[in-house]
Design a protein around this nucleic acid. Structure first.
Length: 586
RNA sequence: GCCCUCAUAGCUCAAUUGGACAGAGCGUUUGCUUGCGGAGCAAAAGGUUGGGGAUUCGAAUUCCUCUGGGGGCGCCA
């Protein structure tokens, strides 16, 4: 908001240091705590310590830092954008001119609207691969975190100024698909899915797994079917195409419900053949060892890298010549960069794949691809059930996505009925969807990627406290004020009264949106945005309680209307980055 | 055995990336609606940041070590 003025002050400080024989260093600005007034702060401890070291002096650092801050405070000349400067406990605090700052923040939010927070174009093209569901399998709450996180990271990266390609990589072939088809042919031939497609597919997969374990002849039959697939037996291929489509239709439905879109779809089946060529190349280059048919084709990474028990061994092809996950992933990585000229490739995959991802990247590096340094595994922890039980479609310990969504929406709808009985049914349903989905998404995005989420029905369906509905509600309240005031946001106007502390805090938080977006993008952490959205909502509720808007005198009223509109916009923008919609009423 | 990861209020999590008094929600206790929407607000109680050491003017944050959870480690994905 005050970048140019800030630069000028930095120059002044550096000049002062030069003139007074002090070390010159970059100034790291931070916010001033204890809000009430706002501005920027820089500490001088480091500078004081460096100075003492350089001159061989023994000093009390905090005291010396305070002296330096004090004399800089005296020497500095402020433009009218700043109100005052003071030295406190070794910090130099420079307070913005409240009125100018407040106007700038609100004006820019209302001018830019949904684009508020949009960063300058970085020229970077980033592909984010996420979701990666397997066809012929269930889609449960454990898969939800990936989709929600990946989607939000895409939103944030794009908002930060990157050209983002949203990619999905579907596991449409492999042993699990063959197993599914075996069970289908033997026990369900001719059946078609009804109702919830994904669940139907998932149930059949669970049955296949059960039968595979209990029926002695299963193993041989499944292997025979795999062989027919490998020969591209037309009947098997036709069945595969038909059943695969069922899953894809089911996934489309889920993505539509979650409001998630992809720019590009990759299928495992399309990189299988090229993957096998990569394996040949690896063997030819001496990077992989082919000991078939006794052993599979492996890349002995530790031997190649001179490391011990770090990268282990990557198996790239089965001894019978069929492909593995790694076969296809190597090929896919190359395809991505060639196809889209990426500057960065992000894989949103759970933390259990960390070693595997390192192996893939290392192998590609050994093959000589210079872009492997631009590949990044965004690891997140999994969603467990209470008692540290991992969700597993095989063991039937899953919470189905649809069940969760239905339950959440039903509860949200009941509350809307209670709060807003006059609304028409369609509006109520739409609000319930936004609230329920918001609550689920927020609960997964408001904690660090490295933290395990323990799924708990009550926690997932709690609409109170630090949760999306609280934030949405703040936006709705702002909307309500604006509606009552005639639905028109007043044009920009000069600020003619002294702001209260709560207004200042609110404006301060609203002003942080662009910087937090950059920070969240740099670290792929939607958490930062989730926290900020909550802080803004909380500050808005304070404002709502303490600062009358509609009954205020005209000039105050108009400014506060603008502040309410800006607050709502900031909330809407932040929630949008998390993939959460803000309703008009709720 | 090797590697990764987590440990902060009774519970679930934050903490501007090494800075100013470690903050929220839930739960507990006590209050607040002829006032712009109570899915809200205010107050109280709750902490030796798992233990120990090191670096630093300064450590929840970095390093070492120990303890305790979770995960991964040659033909699953």
């Amino acid at each position: 908001m005050f970048e140019s003025e800030q630069k000028r002050i930095e120059t002044q400080i550096k000049t002062y240091c030069k003139e007074h024989d002090l070390p010159v260093r970059e100034i790291a600005w931070s916010w001033i705590p204890f809000s009430g007034n706002w501005g920027i702060a820089a500490s001088f401890f480091q500078l004081a310590a460096d100075d003492a070291r350089a001159k061989g002096l023994k000093i009390n650092v905090p005291q010396r830092a305070q002296e330096i801050a004090g004399s800089i405070a005296d020497a500095i000349e402020l433009s009218e954008a700043f109100e005052r400067v003071e030295a406190v406990k070794g910090y130099l605090n420079i307070y913005f001119s409240g009125k100018i700052y407040a106007m700038r923040v609100i004006d820019s939010v209302l001018r830019e609207k949904t684009a508020y927070g949009q960063g300058d174009a970085t020229g970077q093209r980033v592909m984010v691969e996420f979701s990666q569901p397997n066809t012929h399998k269930a889609f449960h709450v454990g898969h939800l975190r990936n989709v929600i996180l990946g989607n939000s990271v895409c939103n944030i990266l794009a908002k930060a100024g990157n050209d983002v390609i949203r990619a999905n990589y579907l596991g449409d072939i492999g042993l699990h698909v063959i197993k599914w088809m075996w069970c289908y042919l033997k026990y369900h031939d001719g059946e078609v899915p009804s109702g919830d497609i994904t669940r139907w597919m998932g149930d059949l997969y669970a049955e296949a797994t059960r039968r595979h374990e209990s029926e002695p002849e299963a193993e041989a039959e499944i292997r025979a079917l795999f062989a027919r697939w490998d020969q591209r037996d037309p009947d098997v291929v036709a069945l595969w195409e038909r059943t695969r489509q069922w899953s894809l239709d089911g996934f489309d439905e889920i993505y539509r419900t979650l409001n998630v879109k992809f720019d590009h779809l990759y299928f495992e089946s399309e990189v299988e053949d090229s993957g096998k060529e990569i394996v040949d190349e690896l063997v030819a280059k001496g990077l992989a060892v082919d000991e078939r048919p006794e052993n599979p084709v492996v890349v002995k990474l530790d031997e190649l890298c001179g490391t011990k028990e770090k990268y282990r061994v990557l198996v790239v092809l089965r001894s019978d010549g069929t492909s593995l996950y790694a076969t296809k992933d190597l090929s896919l990585a190359i395809k991505k960069f060639e196809q889209f000229q990426l500057t960065r490739s992000i894989y949103v995959i759970d933390v259990r794949q960390s070693l595997y991802m390192q192996q893939i990247f290392k192998t590609l590096e050994l093959m000589g691809y210079p872009w492997t340094k631009d590949c990044y595994h965004l690891a997140y922890e999994i969603v467990n059930l209470p008692g540290n039980v991992t969700m597993s479609s095989r063991d039937g310990t899953v919470v189905f996505l649809q069940d969760l969504l239905d339950e959440a929406t039903a509860r949200a709808l009941a509350i809307v009925e209670e709060k807003n009985p006059a609304l028409d049914a369609e509006t109520k349903q739409s609000i319930a969807n936004k609230v329920a989905l918001g609550a689920l998404k927020y609960s997964m995005l408001s904690r660090d990627n490295t933290k395990i989420v323990t799924f708990d029905w009550d926690a997932a369906l709690d609409f109170n406290g630090q949760a999306a509905p609280y934030i949405q509600y703040a936006g709705v309240r702002a909307n309500s004020i604006l509606r009552k005031a005639g639905g028109v946001v007043p044009a920009a106007l000069p600020l003619e009264y002294d702001l209260t502390v709560v207004e200042i805090e609110l404006i301060d938080l609203v002003s942080r949106v662009p910087k937090e977006i950059q920070r969240a993008a740099a670290e792929c952490k939607p958490l930062f945005i989730a926290n900020l959205a909550y802080d803004i909502a909380q500050a808005f509720n304070n404002f709502y309680r303490l600062c009358p808007v509609i009954q205020a005198e005209p000039q105050v009223r108009d400014f506060r209307l603008r502040l309410a509109a800006a607050s709502r916009q900031a909330i809407v923008n932040c929630l949008a980055l998390l993939g959460i919609e803000t309703p008009e009423v709720m």
